[in-house]
Design a protein around this nucleic acid. Structure first.
Lengths: 343, 343
DNA sequence: AATGGTAATGTAACTGGTTACAAGAACCTG
DNA sequence: CAGGTTCTTGTAACCAGTTACATTACCATT
């Protein structure tokens, strides 16, 4: 019985607001507001009365109303290509952790590397009140630039370091990341190198990495462009195995692809690193444990996330526009690469 | 010169609001509002004037002010233990995609499986105006229940199916997921089984899976409780290899752990499935390509994400409280399991 | 020219909080 | 007990939009 009454009341009950609480506790709206924001300034007995009313009416202050006064919504948006790649997940996790410390929440949206979708997502972020925006890479739809310019929204580009970009960048030099991997293979005397990479057209990080693949030496490159997935790595490796003029080394522009390659080589008995050297870029947690352990270029994405979060927090809180900061990839030598030996 | 003037103006320039635009274009605030929300009702010439003013003043409507009128913020929050495990990333990706279709954004926060942190994150979600909350599992800090109850916030528990929970649940029966894996091993005559799992104390999904591990048969279980990471899987496998009374099968309550186990067995030459059968739960993308391919219990998390998003959208848009819905795990037989053969 | 109907626009009240300022009450000091 | 502090509390303006309702403008009939 009691339950039923309570339930039916629950359904018809409108949300209580400040005025309701004020009325119920016989004080003014200002006093209720004070109880919520600076309780010390209210006398204990008044405060107690108000708190009871708050409890009874299940009063929850409106975030929007608060935001309209402070001009703050206390969250920032991040646009990433996908969540399916652990590299972004780790970046976001680091960023979120640091943002929370500044009392900022993180809103995530995925763009699937499509500039049009990216603009839509950015517009949505703005519409719901994001105070800042983090994007990946520096190449975007013109509308995104217009949007940011118009709205004066703090924006930071990540996974890329470029002092000439429209916005501050926090990231690494993608060209030198891939050059690091390439140089390692060259040092091991590899001259026939398969390069497995994700879609280049819409992804400037991939393009930059591809551009980093230059050398004075006479190298025979073979490019495999695919989706970024373990499966695609498997398929690329399968192709190589059927090639009578097979490469001696495989450079994957993403560890996810390298894992696929490693799996397929392993499965088909193609010895790594004896027959094929394999090197990746990213350094995912699994890369330290794969068989063989993957030599890869470590991208400090957690650090990137923390730095980005700090910069963003300082920007939205204190209006200090961050400088671009470069973080440095480092080659992580493990077991999947070895000196080239002609059979 | 021009640049400098433009810059200094930019710095001092306050953000324009509706009234400013109205003044600049010589119309009333209502007309400007109409230009933004229902342009057809405004005469073309007036509209043009207003649009120019909007452009000139770089007017961007305040999300908060809009929200205060509509009572809507158009985003919902999701609390997940971590982003580091691909299983959550995939769930969130699916949910985000579906929410976008309903014009809702997704705010993500991680709890690290800590009930206290979870409450804080939930409070934060509420403070910034989330219209709904998605959580993992059904066991939470009492304060979280109070919070949801007080605020009448639409809340859905996922990764768990339980009709008796405080909130609607959308997920699978974790006990039967692990039972599926166990039964498979039993059918293959395994009786000494290592169970590798994540921290049980704070994770009701893990506990439920553990509870599913019951049988009439005389089975010798050995439990390995660790962090959920590839590395932990490696370590557990290493332990097993040193055990003279080694198990014949390994049941991992998470694919991430299984991958670690597989890597270590592979590396040390312990044949899978001949010497050890290995089975997982989750079915990550990599599981179909590992060596050997991992037999695992497929959890349809993408479907779970979509369903959750639909339910949440219906709840916040049309106030229809969703029913709990169960999604069914299915055993995905691949190559990592085989009949037990005494050596 | 008067009437009517519709389309376009304006006025002002509203949303739900915060806060500057004013005013009243309580307390202290000489 | 007057006068001055300090502490509490209230009033009302304000934030930046939306929207019900009123008003005006415009065009077509009769």
């Amino acid at each position: 019985m009691v339950t039923i009454i309570a339930m039916s009341r629950k359904i018809t009950q409108k949300k209580a607001n400040l005025r309701d609480v004020a009325k119920a506790s016989g004080v003014s709206v200002a006093t209720v507001s004070r109880v919520m924001n600076s309780p010390q300034t209210v006398s204990p007995k008044t405060r107690a009365r108000v708190e009871i009313a708050i409890r009874d009416l299940k009063f929850v202050p409106s975030a929007a109303a608060r935001a309209i006064n402070s001009g703050r919504t206390r969250f920032v948006g991040a646009l990433v290509p996908t969540l399916d790649n652990a590299i972004f997940a780790r970046f976001l996790a680091a960023m979120e952790t640091r943002l929370i410390d500044s009392g900022l929440a993180l809103v995530v949206a995925t763009t699937n590397d499509d500039p049009e979708i990216e603009v839509q997502r950015a517009e949505n972020m703005l519409k719901i009140g994001a105070e800042g925006l983090v994007v990946s890479g520096v190449t975007h739809h013109p509308d995104l630039h217009t949007l940011i310019e118009r709205s004066q929204l703090p924006a930071i580009a990540t996974s890329y370091y470029d002092l000439n970009a429209d916005w501050p960048t926090i990231g690494y030099d993608n060209a030198s990341a891939s050059r690091l991997a390439l140089q390692h293979l060259l040092d091991l005397n590899h001259r026939k190198i398969a390069v497995v990479h994700g879609p280049a057209e819409k992804n400037d990080r991939t393009r930059a990495r591809l551009n980093g693949l230059t050398t004075e030496l006479d190298v025979d490159f073979r490019f495999y462009e695919t989706r970024i997935s373990v499966e695609s790595g498997v398929r690329a490796a399968r192709d190589m195995l059927q090639d009578q003029d097979a490469p001696s080394a495989v450079l994957c522009l993403s560890d996810v692809l390298a894992h696929g390659v490693l799996f397929e080589f392993q499965r088909s008995g193609a010895a790594v690193p004896d027959r094929f050297s394999v090197v990746g870029i990213d350094d995912l947690p699994a890369s330290a444990h794969s068989v063989p352990r993957l030599t890869t270029v470590h991208l400090p994405v957690s650090q990137m996330g923390t730095t980005t979060a700090e910069a963003m927090a300082a920007w939205v809180e204190d209006k200090v526009v961050p400088d671009s900061t470069q973080i440095h990839p480092v080659l992580q030598e493990r077991e999947s690469t070895a000196k080239y030996q002609p059979c």
